[in-house]
Nucleic acid binder design. Structure first.
Lengths: 204, 204
DNA sequence: TTAAAATATAAACACTGTTTATTAAATTTG
DNA sequence: CAAATTTAATAAACAGTGTTTATATTTTAA
């Protein structure tokens, strides 16, 4: 029965073909400005064909998000290498913010896009990013077990650290730091300073 | 020459009619899902008429943002009333976060929408929100002049405080706290805790 | 080789923001 | 007051969107 296996391979190949085109276009043009027709044109298939492999445009986004979170997690495992818990936390924070700044469009798809989150729904779909989040929680627990942090609740700690990191990145990604009359390099410096400062503040 | 004045009044009235419809629809349905045709239908005019009063859909958004920032500033002046600088900072932080949580769709238009910021352009358009930001800077300066804060640079301080506040609100608005397996009330409590915690941390 | 199943697509539907040519109304001028 | 002109509103069209359906085309099974 090699035939049905080859068919399955072909199907996966096609899905990959589509998602690769989608990724590259989402990242260069953004989600909204990328149309199914454009993706279809890029892979030289008709628009309707895409709907044989993905339910709708949102499902393309979910898959892209999945891969993006994989990439973030990989970055964590590559860059958060210290044995010292506190040093690990520092590496984690800098890695997170730099990941956002180096992959702005991707960061937008992961953490800022509101459209397909659909606050209401129950969603199996959004079991994403828990890995990365768990990574943070683990790191914070390690610090707090050794009384290295001025937090008394791990979840509040995680919420705080994440919010600080996300605040810095997302205001930058959405260009809101324009409100501060500073040039780009000054802002970049200030952002790194802010992280360092924050890390000092939360140290016990 | 009362005629041209009445015409000017009529024109303003029409602009108000349009923007009021736009606001209410942006806030209930969101910017993307609100169409010019829907707005036109609501005010019982043809879609093309709107273009006689506003250049395009983005210009509607800019006007809505302007009014939203006015509302935030008003809230600041209403709720940030203490004479004590440090107490003022606390009031400011809580006011900001609660404003975001009570006006999620509006907060999205103000601080999260990427579309019409157009990072590149020079924009006179985006002289918004500087008032609110200046309010924060003033508040922080007052604190720091009295050595009440563990910051040594006002701009870094402003960047940090804003990022923390924005991080908390925007992750909530965009439903990303779903990654933490917590119910809504727990998250709301944790957010308020995080602010209190942060304020303690930055106190000298 | 023919019948059946899987795959791809053209065409259509109901939308979108925006522009243009046309019509209707209000105002100014002779 | 009537005619000419400016102003205001719109219908219709353009080029685009996500998505569905009915129609080929190709591949597999009998």
């Amino acid at each position: 029965m090699g035939i049905s296996e080859r068919k399955e391979r072909d199907k996966q190949e096609m899905r990959t073909k589509i998602i690769d085109a989608a990724i590259s276009m989402f990242l260069t043009e953004g989600y909204e400005k990328t149309s199914i027709r454009n993706i279809a044109e890029k892979i030289e298939y008709s628009p309707a064909t895409i709907y044989l492999y993905y339910k709708d445009k949102d499902e393309l986004l979910y898959e892209v998000q999945r891969q993006a979170f994989e990439k973030l997690e990989l970055e964590f495992h590559e860059k958060v290498t210290s044995a010292d818990p506190m040093e690990r936390l520092e590496q984690l924070c800098y890695t997170y913010v730099r990941f956002g700044k180096n992959n702005k469009e991707m960061y937008d798809l992961m953490f800022m896009m509101k459209a397909p989150m659909n606050c209401v729904e129950e969603d199996e779909t959004w079991n994403n990013n828990t890995d990365s989040f768990d990574f943070l929680v683990k790191c914070l627990s390690d610090c707090m077990e050794n009384n290295l942090l001025r937090f008394d609740n791990v979840m509040t700690a995680a919420l705080s650290v994440w919010s600080m990191g996300h605040g810095l990145v997302s205001l930058d990604v959405s260009c809101r730091f324009k409100a501060m009359q500073m040039d780009e390099t000054s802002i970049n410096i200030a952002i790194e300073e802010a992280i360092g400062q924050y890390l000092k503040l939360i140290k016990a």
